[in-house]
Design a binder for these strands. Structure first.
Lengths: 224, 224
DNA sequence: ATTTAATTTTAGATTTGTCTAAAATAAAAT
DNA sequence: ATTTTATTTTAGACAAATCTAAAATTAAAT
């Protein structure tokens, strides 16, 4: 038997929104949450009180709020579910990475823990979702990959291209030509002190050279 | 973008319950529905009025009710989703057929039609769920497999064991020993007029003999 | 054909999550 | 340091889905 859901979908959405806003902004306001959840500040205040009563939130009126340990724990489980479902939709059902978010917004509220752990196993315990965001494990821990530009990537460390700073057409042309795209696995084999240019090696053993200017605009993530 | 759910989970559950009760009982009462949904008759009456307002139900107070065409259509889509998810849970995530119902009760309310059609394709368009119940196709049609006891199964026709009449410990022991269980694929190769005993052949080529008494209590389904 | 019993429906409350409009508080600007 | 502006909270209301208790209707039983 699947346990009755501990928290409502609405509660889960608030926790998730606050979690995400805390990550980016550090401090989160009532208006931020209202904006994120497409609702009104008054509704947010109402919910903040309920979350506090459930000990999911530390909240003092007019002063601010943040997730409690329990609140963060719940948020991480929702995020885990969301990202695993996204991975499933893309990997198994051939959805595009850009069309899975809405569906995962619904699937993330399915309560069964056994289901999600089985799904995780079925998918091969993926570490990140189709957008490159990390998937928390069943204890809520996730290995946050380190994000740096190529210039700061240690030598001989395999990393994955995660974002591009300068997205001008010229830059994208250059990257396309060199074979650098989101998700590409790269390794820095040599760094020339003279002009800070780099020699990169791909999985397919090919080696290319990029300038400091390019290296500064290619961000990669790696474990450790 | 996933379309907003047309109907609430509650509405969907009522439609599904009424659909099932109509199948078995023919006529459905307020009390039946209350019992099925673990709620109170007064709550059922409230909902009947709402369903009528949405044209999902034909209802005259004190006189009775039944699903409208639209109501039946919606119910069938919910049942389709429920059974496809059950199939997924058993086939892909290795759940037991007896532990998937509750989880599917939640999954069946995920709204995306694209999701369910992709899932259907991914699963190979299964015709029936792990309990042997037929899965409606995306138009709500389903091919009802013929259900007979082994005695009435035509010779050389591959069928699947779908239910057991006499579920006494003695019978189950016998069936277990012979290798007959729910879902087992069988074929009748020979029928002895003398005592109506049968020779059955399994997928793995093994042949066993069962008495008329046993044959009468083993129900199978087959297409056509 | 009445009376009795069962079923169904109404009336009025309750809970959850939302809303608007107004009040309270904090932050920004002069 | 006040005043103005923006933010946050309260107060009161609403819709959905449920409940209890009582009333209305139908069915069963004498």
């Amino acid at each position: 038997m699947t346990a009755a859901p501990k928290y409502s979908s609405s509660t889960e959405n608030y926790l998730k929104a606050i979690f995400h806003l805390q990550k980016s902004d550090g401090i989160v306001t009532t208006n931020d949450v209202a904006n994120e959840l497409q609702t009104r500040p008054a509704s947010v205040t109402d919910m903040l009180k309920k979350l506090k009563a459930q000990k999911l939130l530390l909240y003092e009126k007019y002063k601010g709020f943040k997730l409690s340990n329990e609140g963060r724990k719940v948020a991480l489980q929702i995020i885990r579910k969301h990202r695993l479902w996204e991975f499933f939709l893309v990997e198994k059902l051939n959805f595009g990475w850009d069309e899975v978010h809405e569906i995962a917004e619904e699937l993330e509220h399915i309560s069964s823990k056994k289901l999600i752990d089985r799904l995780d196993e079925y998918l091969g315990f993926p570490k990140s979702d189709p957008h490159g965001d990390p998937i928390p494990d069943s204890n809520g821990k996730f290995t946050l990959p380190k994000q740096v530009d190529l210039l700061n990537l240690p030598l001989n460390k395999v990393a994955e291209v995660s974002s591009i700073g300068d997205q001008s057409a010229e830059m994208l042309e250059l990257l396309g030509h060199k074979g650098i795209a989101l998700g590409t696995k790269v390794e820095v084999k040599k760094k020339f002190a003279f002009d800070n240019s780099l020699e990169l090696k791909f999985k397919n053993q090919l080696i290319v050279t990029v300038s400091e200017h390019v290296a500064k605009n290619v961000f990669v993530k790696y474990d450790e």
